[in-house]
């Protein structure tokens, strides 16, 4: 391969106390690709997302950014690299309004004070691009519907023009129309050269959208697939464990498929 992947994990491990939740994880995300991260409940998908976004840093393994090893110890580090995340629990502040949540931690200032007008203007621009059901920008987020909250979280992740986007079950709380809005958006972002890691339980969406799929099972890699060539049955078998640990390391991937 010519250029190194945007983001690569090599042998990443994460434990909570004595429980090893992630073991020797390998993962690559390339620019302009959507990688689906699949796995049963409790497989460690969300934990992996939190490792990459610096919420719960890994204690072992290497994270490479454009081929060069980097340290991600805090959310701040990930953000500086250009990694944005939509967490499964959304991580919004319910008491803040939509604008406040979008710009939390990177408020626009004017003469040292918050520039609410400019922040609100950019918020409404961004949301209008993303969805047709733009919520009341000044309502506290706790009073929005779960779909609207999901949209707010997605909008927030896009605000800093990230290069890698991690989406942890972004469509789980959405209806049909909003789900297709989100999937269209992911499609667009890929076309603009963003690398996307998409966690989803919907095989239809994965098939339609993803370029590659990585399967986790009990905290380990349990297969990498080219979504265009692999069959749905193959992928599901890997998720459920019918095919155990086929390619243990990424290096074997090319040979395998």
């Amino acid at each position: 391969m010519a250029s190194p992947p945007l983001l690569a994990l090599r042998g990443v491990c994460k434990r909570f106390g004595v429980v090893e939740v992630l073991t020797d994880i390998e993962l690559e995300i390339r620019a302009g690709q959507v990688v689906a991260l699949l796995g049963d409940n409790g497989a460690g998908k969300s934990t992996l997302v939190k490792v990459i976004s610096g919420v719960t840093p890994a204690e072992k393994g290497i994270i490479e950014w454009e081929g060069r090893p980097v340290q991600i110890r805090r959310p701040h580090d990930a953000r500086n690299l250009g990694i944005a995340t939509v967490y499964q629990d959304l991580a919004l502040c319910g008491n803040l309004d939509v604008v406040g949540n979008l710009f939390l931690g990177r408020e626009i200032r004017r003469f040292g004070f918050l520039d609410e007008v400019e922040m609100e203007r950019r918020t409404s621009q961004l949301l209008e691009r993303l969805t047709r059901g733009v919520p009341d920008l000044r309502a506290p987020v706790v009073s929005l519907s779960s779909g609207q909250r999901q949209t707010v979280a997605i909008a927030r992740s896009l605000l800093g023009d990230p290069r890698v986007l991690l989406l942890d079950e972004p469509t789980a709380a959405l209806g049909f129309e909003q789900t297709s809005e989100v999937l269209d958006l992911v499609d667009q972002l890929r076309d603009h050269g963003m690398g996307v890691l998409l966690i989803s339980h919907n095989m239809g969406d994965v098939k339609a959208l993803a370029d590659r799929a990585a399967v986790l099972r009990l905290g380990r890699n349990n297969g990498f697939f080219d979504v265009n060539t692999a069959s749905q049955e193959q992928i599901i078998a890997s998720i459920t464990g019918a095919t155990e640990n086929v390619p243990r390391r990424m290096a074997h991937r090319e040979a395998g498929w």
């Binding site: 976004s53 919420v55 959310p75 991580a91 919004l92 502040c93 803040l96 406040g100 939390l104 918050l114």
Partner: peptide, 28 residues
């Protein structure tokens, strides 16, 4: 009141009261 509602510092105060975990993940 201006400090709380119109500055970056004040916004962080409200954010912590909303969700300390969300505040942490937003690099506050």
């Amino acid at each position: 009141d201006i400090v709380l509602r119109r500055t970056h510092y004040g916004r962080q105060v409200y954010a912590l009261g909303g969700s300390i975990e969300a505040a942490r993940r937003a690099s506050l």
